[in-house]
Simulated assay, not measured.
Amino acid sequence: MPKADLADEVRRLIEALEQKRYSAMLASDVATLEDLLDDDLVYTHSFGERDDKAGYLKKVANRFFIYHEIHYSSERIVVRDSCAIVAGIMRAKATVGNAAREIDNSCMAVWGKSKGQWRLIAYQPTPLRK
């Protein structure tokens, strides 16, 4: 398969994985997230806190994050060998802890392929408004 075709195939796969991840976040689906997240995950939140995989999944399981709606777009997906970087926008209405939040972020997601499976390695949002 030509290199450009392979990159397009990976982009489509990563877009599907992003959709699956956001759907799992909306549903508080820990099992799906467990499968999608890399063991070395670095997940940064809108206010700068960071979680590893275990910490993030614990918060999802305990419903620390409750997403009421999520809208996202992947504006650009860059593919290099076993790495894909997604630059996009994520907007959501959520309850975080006990606080209602409206989230409006530019974001970067890094996916890596390990042992034949693509997994999210890192996520970094940047708030677009306060």
Rank of each mutant, 00 (worst) to 15 (best):
M1S: 02
D5H: 00
D8Q: 07
E9P: 00
V10E: 05
R11D: 07
R11W: 01
L17E: 07
L17C: 07
L17G: 05
E18Q: 15
Q19K: 15
R21F: 14
Y22D: 10
M25Y: 14
L26Q: 13
A27M: 03
T32C: 02
L33Y: 03
D35G: 03
L36C: 07
L37S: 03
V42E: 11
V42P: 06
Y43A: 13
Y43E: 11
H45N: 07
S46I: 09
G48N: 04
G48M: 04
E49Y: 13
R50F: 06
K53C: 08
G55F: 13
Y56M: 14
Y56D: 10
A61T: 10
R63P: 03
I66Q: 12
H68F: 06
E69N: 15
I70E: 09
I70W: 07
H71E: 12
S74V: 09
E75L: 01
V78G: 04
V79E: 09
V79S: 12
D81T: 14
A84T: 14
V86C: 06
A87P: 02
A87M: 11
G88W: 02
G88V: 04
G88N: 06
G88P: 06
I89C: 05
I89T: 05
M90P: 00
A94M: 15
T95P: 03
V96F: 13
G97R: 14
G97C: 14
N98T: 14
A100F: 01
R101Q: 06
R101F: 01
I103V: 01
N105M: 05
M108T: 15
A109S: 15
K113R: 15
K113N: 11
K115P: 02
Q117S: 12
R119V: 07
L120I: 12
Y123G: 09
Y123K: 09
Q124D: 09
T126R: 08
P127Y: 00
R129V: 04
R129F: 01
K130G: 10
